[in-house]
């Protein structure tokens, strides 16, 4: 079943055309890694999927609902799409538990006891159940990012978007975050990740999408794509990053 469907999406910032006709469909439970040079439009594509950027033309459909400003409120959008950022963006004035509970309480108006139970479950899932009362500033980068993942999970989204979630981390902390994502993938969560972690893309993704100059230049199963790139641009990219 197709969960995310992107049809001929264009996006420009002033004169700069960042997305020049993107077509992509992601099935339920699929893990898609988007790779490419900086400036190739990968992050913009991800931000269009949750309408942090409005696309200029084309269609984005998520769970059979078409995305545009009029048809989906932030609340409705959050029922479908979760997102984890490169810079964590945890709420620094709230504890880990409060970070996770805030949106379910405020946006959904769910029962406090129920929300707290869910919060403990998702924190358990990311291996941080002992940090419930800690403040983000007391945690390492890797722990903060895992809280951010738990916070997104607490909204039970159908698809999770991950925007270079390990790029701001010290190398020794990357592994713990990737392992959490890997576990999510194994559970059947639909994931779309923009990533520079090629080994992760190769091992965990079902499909790798290579973006180049605002277009999807090449895509396929990771084993194929990495061992047998068809275009010179992808060959060059792979030799540069591996």
């Amino acid at each position: 079943m197709t969960l995310v469907y992107v049809d001929n999406v264009h996006k420009a910032f002033g004169d700069l055309k960042v997305l020049k006709g993107i077509n992509l469909s992601v099935a339920q439970g699929e893990v898609v890694a988007i790779i490419g040079r900086s400036g190739s439009g990968k992050s913009t594509l991800l931000r269009c999927l949750n309408q942090l950027e409005k696309h200029d033309s084309g269609q984005i459909t998520i769970a059979d609902k078409q995305l545009d400003a009029a048809s989906m409120s932030p609340k409705e959008l959050s029922e479908n799409v979760g997102m984890v950022f490169q810079s964590f963006n945890l709420f620094p004035h709230k504890t880990v538990g409060e970070n996770v509970c805030l949106a379910p309480l405020v946006v959904r108006g769910e029962e406090k006891a129920e929300v707290e139970k869910v919060a403990r479950e998702v924190l358990e899932k990311v291996g941080l159940s002992d940090k419930y009362g800690a403040y983000p500033a007391q945690l390492s980068g890797g722990q903060q990012q895992r809280v951010a993942i738990a916070r997104a999970l607490a909204m039970r989204p159908k698809v999770m978007l991950c925007d270079e979630v390990t790029s701001a981390l010290d190398p020794e902390l990357v592994g713990e975050v990737l392992r959490v994502l890997e576990a999510l993938a194994a559970e059947g969560m639909t994931l779309i990740l923009v990533t520079h972690e090629m080994s992760f893309a190769r091992d965990v993704a079902d499909r790798v999408v290579f973006m180049h100059q605002g277009r999807i230049h090449e895509e396929g199963a990771p084993s194929e794509l990495f061992s047998n790139p068809q275009t010179p641009e992808l060959k060059q990219f792979i030799s540069a990053v591996l």
Binding site: N50, L52, L77, V81, L102, A103, M155
Partner: peptide, 10 residues
């Protein structure tokens, strides 16, 4: 702002 928007807050 972005994190709040993505979590569904107005």
């Amino acid at each position: 702002w972005h994190a709040s928007r993505v979590l569904g807050m107005n």
